[in-house]
Amino acid sequence: SRTNRDQANAALVKLAPADLTEIQSAELNQWLTVSGRFPEGIEQLNETLKTRTYILETHEATVADAVVLSRIAGTVKSWSNDEVKLNRHIVRWLDLVQNVIGIKDEDKVTVNKDLEAPREIK
């Protein structure tokens, strides 16, 4: 079940679930389930975002990005510099999504973009 914050964020995206492909719909269900269990699954989210701009590999943010953002924002806010480096793909994605869907400034997570992390082997 979605919280008020989930609903508020979901209302900010334009792309409707009906516009998604069969695989994207399945991935949407997957992330709605997994994000309800955070911090379990954070590693998988970071791995997924390694090669994707948005969670469902769409050209714009979807309800998956909006709801997952609402569920992980508090956790990201509490991360140490080392955790930010470890989960850099989530941090990059969060910074993008919170700006493109128009989260209010007071609700945004401040992202430190100056941290240097060792290059990853892809």
């Binding site: 399945a26 997957q30 389930t33 997994v34 998988q44």
Partner: peptide
């Protein structure tokens, strides 16, 4: 390019 790892999402798919 695509895979699912969450069991309930797999069943639904």
């Amino acid at each position: 390019d695509h895979s699912l790892f969450e069991p309930n999402a797999i069943v639904e798919y």
